[in-house]
Design a protein around this nucleic acid. Structure first.
Lengths: 151, 151
DNA sequence: TCCGTATGGTTACAAATGTAACTGTCTATT
DNA sequence: AATAGACAGTTACATTTGTAACCATACGGA
């Protein structure tokens, strides 16, 4: 009873597959930092960006993690409220502000990276070394493409 | 001035990379079906699931595309309103209903698969054959893992 | 047959998100 | 200088999403 249009298979369609995999993988990790720290994803990403690359401006955080301005803005606000980051105005350009983790923020970041590492291990067990290897080199190719044709 | 915690790099963290890539790739395609047909992503996914696998129940659609019940429910409603799908109650189990594309729905599906194919080509040009190949086999590994440890 | 529980699907409400407009500051051109 | 545009960041509003409660039906004992 299946109709003739067997020339397209959703299960083969890359955007679909990629999305499903990303959701699965990200969600499992999100559960961890949500449960333990009550962080949202934009908040975790901002924390991670600052933790791993150091002092940055909000725009830079956004560019790095491809998050929209508003997401960053709200995440920064939330993290500031927790006293996990502090802002300082740029001396020369009074529009910009530099973001930096406080000691408490850095500690939280360290804890979370431990979680992240654990999860990476779990993943490599779950998915397998070769799978991860392939995935990673595929992603590198995509990242290059993104860099070439931004936005 | 960068602090010592150089042992974790967000740019290497798989959930992050996957998500960024998925967003980039899915968004570009989403723009197409959104602009041309005004479909949301859950709607497109539902249409695609029904178009490519034929008659299904809402729960099955959700399982297949890993969409939440409510997303499916709303997508089905929207597609029904457009007269792109019709429901029929199951004879034996009066809770369940089978979903099926109408002629108009099937036509839209066919149009959209053309778009999808075009996009696949564009992708393979943008990302490159080997990249896609690697990505695909990596995704296969993830999909196996998902199947093993569902949810 | 009656009761507890599971399941398909919808709906109400709250939280997250995107869009667009806005404030304030900077820069370039005149 | 003066003005027009660009840019950092925030805010208001509409849309989308997730959570939980809900209805109706089905199923599995006691």
């Amino acid at each position: 009873m299946s109709d003739g249009q067997r020339d397209f298979d959703l299960d083969q369609f890359l955007p679909f597959r990629l999305n499903r995999a990303a959701e699965f993988i990200a969600l499992r990790f999100a559960a961890a930092y949500k449960a333990e720290y009550g962080l949202t994803r934009p908040e975790w990403r901002t924390l991670a960006a600052l933790g791993s690359s150091g002092r940055m401006t909000a725009t830079e955080v956004g560019a790095h993690s491809t998050m929209h301005k508003t997401k960053v803005s709200r995440a920064v606000f939330a993290l500031e409220e927790r006293r996990w980051l502090k802002r300082t105005q740029d001396e020369d350009d009074r529009r910009a502000e530099h973001l930096e983790l406080t000691a408490a923020g850095a500690k939280a970041y360290r804890d979370l990276t431990r979680l992240a590492r654990d999860y990476s291990l779990e993943l490599s067990e779950l998915v397998g070394q070769e799978g991860l290897q392939a995935l990673s080199s595929g992603l590198t190719a995509v990242e290059k493409a993104i860099a070439k044709r931004p936005r």
